[in-house]
Design a protein around this nucleic acid. Structure first.
Lengths: 242, 242
DNA sequence: GGAGGTATATTGGCCTGACCAGTTGACCGG
DNA sequence: CCGGTCAACTGGTCAGGCCAATATACCTCC
């Protein structure tokens, strides 16, 4: 039953929320660019036909998301969007940090590789092989980083699928989404692409051979390699910022 | 030259920002848990010694970050962290299988115990000890099964908290919810309560001693014991049904 | 006794108007 | 030219009021 069919007809959300939405709209349309100053609160409030407190609530909510910054005595300014994928912002929030996420990947992917070596079915191995080849092809033809990152994630996902634990699969799915949103692929790190390819090959071989211990070891080495590359990537970003 | 030497001396940030920070503090300390309702705006404003508009700005900024949700006529409520929400929806998208569930718990709780043994802080150990004693007390005074299950989950959560990985904590939290919703506690199984108590003691001792390997082994034995009890419990239910 | 409506209390939503507090720049006196 | 003062911005905060959505208790009617 579609209970959502008869929603209340009032304008959506609170006044402050609508104001914030409008301002964000202007920012995506580039009518407001980074560094621009908004009109003074009093003026903007009358322009929008709202009271100053309502406008201030909207400003505060955008400031909380980092889209605006307010400076006492000066005005309200548009901040640069966070599209520059900085670890410091997305991954270093109070939700989690980089080391925790990589530790988690190790916790999840090492047993996944082990189980995959034990439980493999023919069709599962086929899909794994396929994912592997897609990735190798892409690396060989110098595909762009986004595609490489997607195919890399695809290979890892295929491993976990063969392992056959849906909790594990779903959890790693969320983990990968968070990491993909918060940082660029570590494959950009010089030499990492080649090293990663070797490690993938090793993991695949071990799973095919049914060598559970070997698969676990290979997966562990792979995650640690990626972790190390990520740390170097962070270092470099900090240097670039200086 | 240390230009930062002469910073302005005023209290940091705007009033609304300080309020928001305080509320976030309470949330990380779990003094405010997901689903809790905050006091009414008017009341909370006087409690904090601020005006209602200032408080509302703080609430709005937290709402923008998804940490609070305000419902007209009802109140202001604490939201679960974004990661938890994603895990909840993702992990509930499949059927739940008992063996997979316990395998997943083993994957997560074994390293958690190991890390807890390495990383323990004084305050963390105190809370762990406290959770342990609550559980022992309840078992001693024949508390009802629901309470025992809650306190058992509390002890496990305390271990993961000491381990210090927030993603791990949230994943296990969601897993526990699934277990609590989908099955009765395995402690009902005859003799399991006593056995479980022993295993908890062992885990606690190992963590206190800083013995990472020992803690992992104890945690593994505990989960496997619970798994076995769960299997027997299911068997018995099938028999009862006949 | 149950279904339905109504009154009221409680909650957030929004406004007006005022005053406080940093920031800036023009102006004035040395 | 330098330094200080002051006035005009700007956001920061407060008080108090009324409106609107929601929940609850109660009451009426069947």
């Amino acid at each position: 039953m579609a209970a959502e069919l008869w929603e209340p007809i009032r304008p959506p959300g609170s006044l402050a929320a609508r104001i914030a939405e409008r301002v964000e709209e202007l920012m995506t349309e580039e009518q407001l660019k980074a560094g621009d100053r908004l009109p003074p609160e009093r003026e903007l409030a009358t322009l929008l036909g709202v009271s100053r407190p309502s406008l201030r609530e909207a400003i505060r909510s955008l400031a909380a998301k980092g889209r605006l910054s307010v400076r006492h005595g000066q005005g309200v300014f548009v901040e640069a969007p966070l599209t520059t994928k900085r670890l410091t912002s997305s991954l270093n929030s109070d939700e989690h940090d980089l080391d925790e996420l990589y530790a988690m990947r190790e916790v999840l992917e090492v047993p996944a590789a082990g189980w995959a070596a034990k439980n493999h079915t023919e069709s599962g191995l086929e899909r794994l092989q396929e994912a592997y080849e897609l990735l190798v092809d892409a690396a060989g033809r110098q595909a762009d980083w986004d595609e490489l990152q997607r195919l890399d994630a695809g290979f890892h996902e295929a491993v976990v699928r063969v392992a056959g634990n849906r909790f594990l699969l779903r959890t790693l799915g969320v983990l990968n989404e968070i990491m993909a949103a918060g940082m660029e692929t570590t494959l950009r790190h010089p030499g990492r692409l080649q090293q990663s390819a070797k490690e993938h090959t090793k993991i695949l071989e071990m799973i095919k051979a049914g060598d559970s211990r070997g698969a676990r070891a290979a997966a562990r080495a792979h995650i640690r390699g990626a972790h190390a590359a990520a740390l170097k990537y962070v270092e470099q970003q900090i240097q670039d910022a200086e």
